[in-house]
Amino acid sequence: MMMKLKPVAVLISIVCLFAACTKEYSFEGSLGSGGSTGGTAHFTITGATGSCAAISGNYKANVALSDSNTVAITVYVDSIGTYIISTGTSDGISFSASGTFAGTGAQTIILNGQGTPVASGIFNFTPGNSGCTFSITVTGDSNNSGGTGGNNGGGTTTTDCKACAYTPTCQGSTYVQVYSLNGTTSERTTTYKSVTDTSIGGATYKKIVSNDGMSGDVASYLNCDNGIYTQIAYNATSLTGSASATMIKQIGLKVNVPVGTTWTDNINASYNGITVTNTYKHTIKGIGISKTVEGVTYNDVIQVEVEITTEYNGISIPSGIAEYYFAKGVGTIETDITNNGSTSSISLKSYNIP
């Protein structure tokens, strides 16, 4: 199972890396990307999810959108004036429109697409903060092996869900975790709803769509070639909405290296409108160790320590330390996060891997 860090101070943490994807603790690649509205007019976006938009154009991974990529929506105008409507960004693309309403009543607005899709799959967009959400299906281009087949339209069905031995990605897997955060303890069950293969930058990633019963469907991408576990997530947003990152790419684990091996990842993000750089220094602290979690003893465990610092205007601020424990054939069994003297933890209580 894939584990995430909790945001500490202005820490921008990796998405569902090696954990259940839960919005409360970090960034996640959301399957519904919300947007914003503005202007002097007063209006409401009408229609229900799945039937509120007319989509035009073809969408292919690594092919920039053109004037033909549009989405028509209906709004009801109560008072005239200027308007701005936009979606959030998902898979590297977004939709927006601006102009002036000269009259009231129902009107059709054409949202223009911009950006370049990064990966194949199905991606959701919400114009403004409305109840209208529409889906864009991105197909694989001629230079990658991703497609629209498989489950949830995210590529071809993965052939070996246990190839990443320390983070199995088998569809239908369930993980029950115990969260001990800020003095409160709770349990959450995460299910891997679909796992498919898709191509990103010429490499095959496993697209994992998971749901913990609280945060909705969340997508992330994992590659473990040569024992290097790399995860990607797009359009990550913190729980409060104050921090965001267009893309997060991080190496969370290396399995074919000795104890003491270190590596560093940098992630740029926006925090309350301020751009910051978060640095993650990973260190392999133990290999082949035993670890008892929630009364269960796991063998062949790798321990990884992550020191996080946040840099802004040349100032480096310590933002916390996380300890990850990965059990072979299971996934992350425990994460301990320490910041400013307080410690939070996420521990695995039980699991089922088909």
Results as ranks from 00 to 15, higher is better:
209 V>K: 01
210 S>R: 07
211 N>V: 02
212 D>E: 09
213 G>W: 00
214 M>W: 00
216 G>E: 07
216 G>V: 02
216 G>Y: 02
217 D>P: 03
218 V>K: 10
219 A>F: 08
223 N>Q: 05
223 N>V: 01
225 D>E: 14
227 G>N: 10
229 Y>H: 06
233 A>M: 02
234 Y>P: 00
235 N>S: 14
235 N>E: 10
236 A>Q: 11
236 A>E: 12
239 L>T: 11
240 T>L: 09
242 S>R: 02
243 A>H: 00
246 T>W: 01
246 T>N: 12
247 M>Y: 01
249 K>H: 00
249 K>P: 00
250 Q>A: 12
251 I>E: 15
251 I>G: 07
253 L>N: 03
253 L>V: 11
253 L>M: 10
257 V>P: 02
258 P>H: 04
258 P>A: 15
258 P>K: 08
264 T>F: 00
264 T>A: 04
265 D>Q: 12
265 D>L: 05
268 N>V: 08
270 S>N: 14
272 N>W: 04
272 N>H: 07
273 G>V: 04
275 T>Y: 06
276 V>Q: 08
276 V>F: 01
277 T>E: 07
278 N>Y: 03
279 T>C: 05
280 Y>K: 02
287 I>Y: 02
289 I>V: 15
289 I>M: 10
289 I>G: 07
290 S>N: 15
293 V>L: 13
295 G>H: 10
296 V>E: 08
297 T>D: 01
298 Y>V: 06
300 D>W: 10
302 I>L: 04
302 I>H: 13
303 Q>E: 15
304 V>K: 05
306 V>Y: 01
308 I>F: 02
312 Y>M: 15
315 I>K: 15
315 I>M: 13
318 P>W: 09
320 G>P: 07
